[in-house]
C-alpha cells in the first residue's frame, strides 16, 4: 500500500528527514515512536502534502501512485487522512459545513452519490455517538475553543466519516484523559480492516495497549534506527530511547 524509499525532507536549510525507508502493507498498523524533534510530525506532514517541507530526495509510492506528485486534496481523495498533532482552528467555519463538504468531496471521487442532508445527519450522529461527542460540536466553529482532548476526538470523528485507506495519526493520544483515550483507541480499532493501514505516531504505550500495532519503529534524528514488533514499545517504556541507542 505504502512504500517510502530513502525519503529526505527539509525545512528551509534544515534537513529533518534523512533517508526514511518504510513498507506498509494493507491492513497493517505501524507505530512510530521517537524523541521530541526527531521528525515524526514532519514525516506525516510530508505524506499529507504540507508545503512547508521540501522533499529533497527519495520517493513515496502509495497504491501505485507517486504520492509526492499529488496536491493535498488529491491525496485526501485517494484515501490519505492525517490526524493533526495540533488540529487547526478555523473561526467562522462551522464544523458541520466542513464535515459534510469533506464527506461529499471524497464520495464524489470514489464514484459514490452525494449524501443528502438527512442521510448525512444520520451518519454523523452515529459517529458522534461512537466518539461520545455532543451534537453541539457540529454547530461550533471548526476546533475553535475546543479543549485539547475535544480537538483530538474531532479528528477521529472526521476519520470515521471519511473512511480513509491510509490513516496518519499524529499523537492523537496526547492530552487525552483515560476515558477519552479508550474512546479514541476504540475509534481507531473500529477502523481497522484488511484494506486499511494506519501509521500511528505516539509517545506512549497506553494507546498501543488498546490499538495493538503490527510493527513499532523508532525514529531518531530523521532516520528509522530500529524496528520491531509490539515488544519494542514495551522495551522503550522500560529503558527509554537512551537505553536503546546505547544498546
Amino acid at each position: 500500500m505504502l512504500s517510502i524509499r530513502n525519503l529526505h525532507a527539509r525545512v528551509g536549510d534544515k534537513p529533518i528527514l534523512k533517508g526514511i525507508d518504510l513498507e506498509v502493507n494493507a491492513g497493517e498498523v505501524h507505530a512510530i515512536m521517537g524523541p521530541n524533534g526527531s521528525g515524526k510530525s514532519t514525516l506525516s506532514s510530508v505524506l499529507a502534502g504540507r508545503e512547508d517541507y521540501e522533499v529533497t530526495d527519495g520517493e513515496v509510492i502509495y497504491m501505485g501512485q507517486n504520492l509526492l506528485d499529488l496536491e493535498p486534496e488529491e491525496r485526501a481523495w485517494a484515501g490519505v487522512f492525517m490526524s493533526f498533532q495540533y488540529p487547526v482552528e478555523i473561526p467562522g467555519v462551522k464544523n458541520i459545513y466542513l464535515l459534510k463538504a469533506a464527506v461529499n468531496a471524497i464520495r464524489e471521487h470514489r464514484g459514490l452519490t452525494e449524501l443528502k442532508a438527512a442521510e448525512f445527519l444520520k451518519l454523523v450522529r452515529e459517529k458522534l455517538k461512537v466518539m461520545q461527542m455532543d451534537e453541539a460540536f457540529l454547530h461550533r466553529n471548526v476546533n475553535e475553543g475546543f479543549s485539547g482532548g475535544e480537538k483530538k476526538r474531532n479528528e477521529i470523528l472526521q476519520m470515521q466519516l471519511l473512511e480513509p485507506t491510509l490513516a496518519l495519526l499524529d499523537e492523537t493520544d496526547s492530552g487525552l484523559d483515560v476515558d477519552a483515550l479508550r474512546v479514541v483507541g476504540e475509534g481507531i480499532n473500529r477502523m481497522r480492516s484488511p484494506e486499511r493501514s494506519v501509521l500511528l505516531v505516539t509517545h506512549y504505550q497506553r494507546l498501543l495497549d488498546i490499538v495493538k500495532p503490527d510493527f513499532v519503529h523508532v525514529l531518531t534524528q530523521g532516520e528509522i534506527k530500529l524496528s520491531g514488533d509490539y515488544r519494542l514499545a514495551e522495551r522503550l517504556e522500560r529503558e527509554g530511547y537512551e537505553g536503546i541507542e546505547a544498546a
Binding site: A48, G49, R50, E51, E71, P72, E73, R75, A76, W77, F81, M82, F84, P87, V88, I90, V93, L98, A101, A102, A105, I106, H109, V142, Q158, L162
Partner: peptide, 12 residues
C-alpha cells in the same frame, strides 16, 4: 487553514 481544509478533501 487552507492546508487543513484541503487535507480533508476540499478543493483549493
Amino acid at each position: 487553514e487552507l492546508f487543513y481544509l484541503k487535507s480533508r478533501g476540499l478543493s483549493e
